[in-house]
Structure formats: structure tokens, C-alpha cells
């Protein structure tokens, strides 16, 4: 029973399915490109202020001047240095989208797992509530709340998180329901394992990969929505430097000084696309890994 296969197994170090998936994902060009793109933007947003030499709100010349030796990306609609504003303008977007995503994924995960595990009535009412939220387009829901209560950063984070919850909950509910039908859950029940322990120790490890993919998708969405809210004026208020806001402020000068608009556009796009690529890489690696496992 154990001889040949056991020997071949003994040589390879056992690894968890998640680490196998992650390694496989890293071998794919799309994952690497995604990591490079998002890594660059995150690095720029976090470390940008350290490299900046001046005040982003300082007026250094006439509005919409093209790139010069002093201002590498020219000036914006007020004559401020685009480069300086770019270096300072990413942090807000970054922390807001990260917090919103984590909050949304965690709450969605909890709701999804509980309703997937308990089933019937709890599931019905929770999911009904989720469907109500799902009925509103994410951006509309965000605008409604922000226009009622004002453009407060924590409010934006909460609203964006709220819009993520039903999407994550739907996914984890169906994954949990699949998982609960397996015999290893029954096995855990035969020794009266507490429900919380079944959920955390038996079910949760089976959700990690799809959840990682979902988190990257949600993060890409957060970035776009929060940037979009800034763009339409519901986010950070001037004169604070912010990429989304910069796109809006400078779009009148698009023809005269395209850098002032294109630079923040490119950065936001790089972040959203990069994060999505990473998620896609994990998803592809996971399906490949599952295929190999099932063979």
C-alpha cells in the first residue's frame, strides 16, 4: 500500500494547496505584470511624499504650462506643480480603497459563511437583504449617501464597503454551501465540534483561493469608485492633492496640457488593472491546481 507512492511522496515537501496556487500564479506573466504595475503605483503613493521637494499646494507659475526642467510634468489649472501633486495625491485613494475592501470582504465573508452554513430561514432573510443592496449600482448608492451626509472620507469608506458586502456574501455563501455538503463537515459534527470552529477550521481554509481572487476584484472596484467619487467632487475636497480630483480639475486643459490629466489617469488605471491581473493569475493557477488534484 505504501511502498512506491509513499517513497515518491516522501521526497517532495508537502505544501498547502494555497501555497502551491500562489507559486503557480507567480510563474504566470500576467501575475508578474500585475504585481509590477500595482507595486509601482502603491510604492509611488506611499513613498511619494518622501521624494517630493516642495509643497504640492505651492503656485510655481502660470496655469497649464507644459513640462519644464523645474516642473517635470508641467503645471495644473492653478499653476501648481503636477509632479508634486501626483507624489502626494495617492495616499488617500490607497488607504480608502484598502480599508473599504477589507471591511467589505470581511463582513461579506461572515454573512456569506453564516447563511451558507445555517441555510433555510437565516439564509433567506440575510440574502434577501443582500439582494436589496445589490439592486443599486455601486456608484449610485455611494452618491446617495455622500450627497446626504457630506463628503466625509470615513463615510465614503463605509459606503463603498457596504456595496461590496452583498457581492462577497453571495460568493462565500455558495462556496460554503458546497463545502458543508462534504463528508468532512459531517465528520466534524460527529464529534460535536462547535459551529464556530467548523466554520473557521474546516470551511474557511477551503475559501482562501476564491476569496483572494474576489478581494483583488473588489480592490480594483474600490479604486475606481473612490477615484470616480473624487472626480465628480464627492470625495476629497480641494485644495488637497488627490488623483481623482486632479483628473476633474485639469480636464478643461486636456488639449493644452495633457500631462496634468493623463498622469493621474494612468496611475489609477495601472493600479486597477494591476490588481485585477494578479487576481486573474491566482484564479487561473487555482483552476489548474484543482485540475491536477482531481486527476
Amino acid at each position: 500500500m505504501t511502498s512506491a507512492q509513499a517513497n515518491s511522496h516522501a521526497e517532495q515537501r508537502p505544501r498547502s494547496a494555497w501555497s502551491v496556487t500562489w507559486r503557480t500564479a507567480l510563474h504566470q506573466p500576467r501575475t508578474r505584470v500585475g504585481l509590477a504595475l500595482s507595486g509601482f503605483v502603491v510604492g509611488l503613493a506611499l513613498l511619494g511624499p518622501l521624494f517630493s521637494s516642495g509643497d504640492p499646494n505651492e503656485f510655481i507659475g502660470a496655469p497649464f504650462i507644459g513640462p519644464t526642467g523645474q516642473a517635470l510634468l508641467g503645471t495644473d489649472f492653478l499653476g501648481q506643480d503636477v509632479m508634486q501633486r501626483l507624489l502626494h495625491g495617492g495616499r488617500t485613494l490607497l488607504w480608502m480603497s484598502l480599508t473599504a475592501t477589507i471591511l467589505g470582504v470581511l463582513i461579506g465573508l461572515a454573512i456569506g459563511m453564516i447563511s451558507g452554513y445555517t441555510g433555510r430561514r437565516v439564509e433567506g432573510s440575510l440574502m434577501w437583504f443582500m439582494d436589496v443592496i445589490l439592486a443599486f449600482p455601486q456608484i449610485v448608492l455611494a452618491i446617495v449617501f455622500v450627497s446626504m451626509l457630506g463628503p466625509l472620507p470615513w463615510l465614503i469608506v463605509l459606503v463603498v464597503a457596504l456595496t461590496h458586502i452583498p457581492r462577497v456574501a453571495r460568493l462565500t455563501r455558495s462556496l460554503t454551501a458546497d463545502c458543508v455538503r462534504q463528508e468532512y463537515i459531517e465528520a466534524a459534527k460527529t464529534i460535536a465540534t462547535p459551529r464556530s470552529r467548523i466554520l473557521i477550521r474546516e470551511v474557511l481554509p477551503n475559501l482562501t483561493t476564491p476569496l483572494a481572487v474576489e478581494t483583488t476584484i473588489r480592490l480594483a472596484w474600490s479604486v475606481s469608485i473612490i477615484a470616480a467619487l473624487s472626480f465628480i467632487g464627492y470625495g476629497v475636497q480641494p485644495p488637497f492633492p488627490d488623483w481623482g480630483l486632479m483628473i476633474n480639475e485639469n480636464r478643461i486643459g486636456l488639449v493644452v496640457q495633457p500631462w496634468s490629466v493623463l498622469a493621474p489617469v494612468v496611475l489609477v488605471a495601472m493600479l486597477a488593472v494591476g490588481v485585477s491581473l494578479v487576481g486573474d493569475g491566482i484564479a487561473r493557477a487555482a483552476s489548474g491546481v484543482d485540475e491536477r488534484v482531481s486527476q
Binding site: S16, A17, W18, Q182, E183, Y184, A187, R201, E202, N206
Partner: peptide, 8 residues
């Protein structure tokens, strides 16, 4: 299905 694939 009687063993959790994600646990040793």
C-alpha cells in the same frame, strides 16, 4: 470528500 483537502 471525507477529508478536508486544505488540512494535513
Amino acid at each position: 470528500s471525507s477529508l478536508n483537502p486544505r488540512r494535513t
